[in-house]
């Protein structure tokens, strides 16, 4: 039972926008809201987006657009999403919670929750995704990289909702990798990592390396990306990138792992994701709980 006084079911985007206010929580799947009290601070009413036409998952103008009502399950099985950089976003979505959760929780909700351990932000960041916000003043686009501000804090004003996430379709030949370590198979990530590599003529020409649960926000490891550019996608390169991920990590100790262990895993996960992208290891072949 959520302690709220009203439940709004707007039938149009305009109605929804008119309802948005600090004491009103936006609900798509609602799974986080019901289990995580931090999202209920100050909330007295809920606005359920379920009736809005935001269940689109489409390609438009070179972008895969994923609407606010698209569930994790739909993302995980979408051929469109599978086609992005070795399906790294599909894989992140597929290990987010249990099947029942993935049938209700949404990708946009996972982004809006802004938790550093979430499983879809690293692949989305590696794919240079954008967030399309809509508020009374109209729409604005924010690079996902600028969207996350801290644990459960993001660049969304109380009168805005996330209409969709947009993922630029990467150039052909873009490879990706995803790796997650949990305490058991069905677990929140102790650490996760996603990466994207583009190799031309034996040299890395584009690299994204993102590690989750090792910083207040999902962490783009700029040093690793820079170090990879121009190098051959070989074992030495990915190990070096893993070392830079360790150096960049600023993890905390909590009930899931110590900071030292997370820092160590930042390197392991980044390296393993990069090995996949570099063709040095099959996808998901290591002894992973995910």
């Amino acid at each position: 039972m959520l302690s709220v006084d009203a439940y709004h079911r707007p039938r149009s985007l305009e109605q929804a926008l008119a309802l948005l206010a600090p004491e009103r929580a936006v609900v798509a799947g609602g799974t986080d809201l019901l289990v995580n009290p931090r999202y209920m601070a100050g909330v007295r009413e809920v606005v359920d987006l379920g009736s809005l036409p935001l269940a689109f998952l489409e390609v438009r103008a070179g972008q895969v657009r994923i609407g606010a009502n698209v569930t994790m399950a739909a993302v995980a099985r979408s051929p469109l999403v599978r086609g992005l950089a070795d399906a790294i976003l599909s894989r992140g979505a597929a290990v987010c919670g249990s099947p029942n959760i993935r049938n209700m929780a949404t990708l946009v909700g996972n982004v809006a929750a802004a938790l550093p351990s979430a499983d879809t932000p690293p692949p989305l960041l590696a794919l240079d995704a954008w967030v399309l916000l809509r508020g009374p003043a109209g729409a604005r686009r924010v690079a996902l990289q600028d969207f996350f501000l801290g644990p459960a804090r993001a660049d969304r004003r109380p009168d805005e909702l996330i209409e969709c996430v947009e993922v630029p379709v990467p150039p052909p030949g873009t490879a990706g990798g995803f790796y997650k370590v949990g305490r058991t198979a069905d677990d929140i990530a102790t650490v996760n990592a996603a990466c994207v590599l583009r190799v031309e003529e034996g040299r890395i020409v584009a690299a994204r390396v993102v590690v989750g649960a090792v910083a207040p926000v999902p962490l783009r490891v700029a040093d690793a990306e820079a170090a990879l550019l121009g190098r051959a996608p070989d074992e030495a390169a990915v190990v070096e990138a893993g070392r830079l991920a360790v150096a960049a990590a600023q993890p905390i100790s909590d009930q899931r792992a110590s900071a030292e262990h997370r820092r160590h895993l930042a390197g392991v996960c980044a390296t393993r994701a990069l090995r996949q992208a570099a063709g040095l290891a099959p996808h998901g072949a290591e002894l992973a709980h995910a």
Binding site: V35, R183, T184, A185, D186, D187, I188, Q255, R256, H289
Partner: peptide
């Protein structure tokens, strides 16, 4: 079951008290 230094349970639920699933 993890306790903090004041004797409070740090993982009072299935989120962080990990019972194995069929995948394990």
């Amino acid at each position: 079951v993890l306790l903090d230094d004041r004797g409070r349970v740090r993982n009072p639920g299935f989120v962080d008290y990990k019972v194995l699933s069929c995948l394990d």
